[in-house]
Simulated assay, not measured.
Amino acid sequence: MAKNQVQFQKGISIHQFMKIYGAEVQCQKRLFEMRWPTGYRCPNCSHDKYCQLQSRALFQCNRCHHQASLISGTLFAHSKLSLTVWFLAIYLITQEKNGISALELSRQLGVSYNTAWRVKQKLMQAMKERDDETPLEGYVQIDDAYWGGVKRGIRGRGAKGKRPFVAAVSMNEEGHPIRMCFTAVNGFKKAELTRWAKAHLRPKSLVISDGLACFRGIEDAKSFHYAIVTGGGADCVELPYFKWVNTMISNVKNAIHGTYHAINNKYLPRYLAEFCFKFNRRFDLEKMLEQLIYSSIQTAPMPQRLLRLAEVRW
């Protein structure tokens, strides 16, 4: 039997990573090249002439005298951690298929749990913001899903404490999954699904769903919708129309249970985004490392108060 080329990628070994990003000066050089590929530009006036203040590690514009550091305005801003620690965290998160918990991250990085938790949450936020910029298109399988809730008593949609989320997977012409988008929502109502579709679907996409009434809201977002009434029960997950979306839901839930055991419902959007980000870039593990570094450059600073708010609407 032929090996799955995606699963058997070599990725980046820890030895390769340390050779490229093992020193602070190496990380600084790469971050500068990624942030300003054509040379430094003042973030205030875009002037390209500057001087470096060695004593404070700042760039000063020769025109407006605005001062900026290498990490100012990025996700790394206001952090006391070195870039080597940040880059190692990015490496561990992107190269681990099922995710890495904040506790394990703290052990690997040699930092406190609280510090590792903040690093993890910030990087997952960068993942979420980047994936939200690329809507699904073409043929899309969609389903309603839930996370958390009580372990006994009422199960399914009526259970207390469950966090609803939309699970969607786009397919290519051969029927293979290309991208997925898992998004926490405030409930499965028509207006809520319309807002979701406008943010996460390209117009004229063909969306296949079960008979849940709220999915008709997708039509109001200028996408085509075809409902297949499944009747519920275990047999409905075996239908080929929903094969990949149900597979992805199962895989993500199993990975979250196995890696994190339990997560706070208000942080669910970020954890879902982590799996989507890595799934959507699974064809090139080596490139994924730099993609998350670049995403961190494009993400605004996230102080503690914003991390704790957690909820980010589309």
Rank of each mutant, 00 (worst) to 15 (best):
A255E: 05
M180W: 08
A213F: 09
F277E: 03
F59V: 13
L136Y: 04
W147L: 08
A126H: 04
Q7K: 14
K120G: 04
L268V: 03
L289T: 04
E133G: 11
L81Y: 01
E24L: 09
I71K: 14
A77V: 08
M248T: 09
Q291W: 07
L92D: 06
F283I: 14
V25C: 07
E137W: 02
Y267E: 04
P164Q: 00
R56D: 06
H78D: 12
F275I: 10
R281N: 14
W86A: 10
V111A: 01
M180E: 02
Y271E: 00
R157K: 07
N251I: 05
G175P: 12
Y91Q: 06
F215M: 03
F8L: 14
G149V: 09
G11Y: 10
S46Q: 10
A2L: 15
P240F: 04
F182D: 01
Q9C: 11
Q95V: 06
L88I: 05
F165K: 01
M18N: 13
N98P: 03
K190N: 13
R282V: 10
F275T: 07
Q9I: 11
T94A: 06
V252K: 05
D210P: 04
S205G: 11
W36M: 05
V111I: 09
G11E: 09
L193T: 08
G153Q: 00
M1W: 10
S223C: 15
I218Y: 05
Y50D: 02
S82C: 07
W147P: 02
C42T: 10
C64P: 06
M18K: 12
N44D: 03
M18G: 07
L289G: 00
T115I: 14
K97T: 06
F275D: 06
W244M: 03
A184H: 03
Y260M: 12
H225R: 09
F277R: 06
D143S: 07
W147T: 00
T84E: 12
S170P: 02
S209H: 08
A116C: 02
K49A: 14
P37V: 06
A184Y: 04
R35C: 02
F283C: 14
Q60L: 13
V229T: 03
F242S: 11
S72L: 01
W196L: 10
E104L: 09
L105Y: 01
C51H: 15
E24G: 02
